[in-house]
Design a protein around this nucleic acid. Sequence first.
DNA 1: CGGAGCTTTGACCGGCGTCAATGAGAGTGG
DNA 2: CCACTCTCATTGACGCCGGTCAAAGCTCCG
Lengths: 243, 243
Amino acid sequence: MGTACLAETLGHYISLSPAERAALDGLAAGTRQYRRGAVIRPEHGPTGDIFVVKSGWLFSSAMLEDGRRQIVRLHFRGDLLGLDSLAFDEAPDAITALTDAHICVIDRAKFGLLFADHPRLGALLFATQQVDRVALTDRLVSLGRSSARGRVAALLLWIARRLRFAGLPVNQGFAVPLTQEEIGDLTGLTAVHVNRTMRVLGEQGLIARAGSNLRILDHDRLARLANHTPRREAIDESWLPAR
Amino acid sequence: MGTACLAETLGHYISLSPAERAALDGLAAGTRQYRRGAVIRPEHGPTGDIFVVKSGWLFSSAMLEDGRRQIVRLHFRGDLLGLDSLAFDEAPDAITALTDAHICVIDRAKFGLLFADHPRLGALLFATQQVDRVALTDRLVSLGRSSARGRVAALLLWIARRLRFAGLPVNQGFAVPLTQEEIGDLTGLTAVHVNRTMRVLGEQGLIARAGSNLRILDHDRLARLANHTPRREAIDESWLPAR
DNA sequence: CGGAGCTTTGACCGGCGTCAATGAGAGTGG
DNA sequence: CCACTCTCATTGACGCCGGTCAAAGCTCCG
């Protein structure tokens, strides 16, 4: 139980007091689990719950009329999801389990009260939204201005970074539970072209692939291809209101 | 003086108490003005101030190594900018004045205290971030999965919507102070292809162009082309903590 | 009148999509 | 253990959308 993983994520940015940790844990209103492929929240449905990812990979996606799909974001342990419900009645995108997954549902009323009882946490949550927003703009630049190779390179670097953030070992390679079709939906390419692109990346010695396992061999060249700008998050603590 | 335009924007979502309006006004720390083309905050520089747009159009953009540019967002009256500074030392994108513009600088410390003194406003600001985030994901879908015509159509609809939100008349046509190169940087196209695309949109009777003036003739067909999903913002007031 | 910036148009090319076929595993039932 | 099926990866042939390059109008302004 508990939303320990939320405290874990926020703890990456600033150190939390025991009272703050307790408040975050107290947000929990139960857990749920889903099988790979399960739709946690359909597009255009009611927005539904706010929740935290405890384990597994999820993604948010939007469908087009012609059946094509764009995956907007991947979500990992510690990510806070369903926040659209604060500002919309209707879900702007679908949330789907990419692997088997556990989530922790958050009590909506308590989440509101958090802003009153722990303004420092409220402000911190506001600040971490900026991190998410910048990640989205980076993807926007990638989709708008990069070649297929650049887009795939950017995606792989971003995944590696997120896994590292979540504390998983990455340097010796890591499992990517994405089909080439899903990689295409993330990068705005077709599955066929993803295949060709990844073959080239392999032939050029930038990555090594074995099944769903992937290893980044030449981080620097990959980063140049991806137009990758390293971003160092640094929450300005002086700005936060006192505990 | 004053940040009346911030209260104006937030007032679109919920009705504010006089005390809340006063608190928002009290955030102001001076105004500045810029000429068309002036860079308010360069990319990779220090993140700098938080501010509200009082008048004019601004944009955020990122440059690639090869000199190409992607415009990430347009900003209008009432938009709250520079929030990256809460989570980053280094500006992730440049902010530039597209037209002559006035901004109102916000006192950083007071902005932090707002979360403590007016938790309802803090929570509301958090909720409005979700609106911005959804707008970004819509653009992401457009760049990832739409044709040139679809992307330009989506951009024009989005601009019209924003102007309407700001209270400007739109139905009889409106001035768009964007060069075709800038429209290209917004949509991930080249200026040449933007030209061809807009000519086609005109020939098909979807829009009418006269100089920098633009009029939407067939909103429905344009929306279909753009894969436009109308989004109704609806802040959940029951969730907000009490005043 | 001349120059600078923007728009418009044409010719050509290449990257990525489309269509189609084959291969490679994993699971299922006999 | 072996068919059978289903999903996903891989590869080839071909076509089109949008990029590139180049040149010519248009408008504004000094």
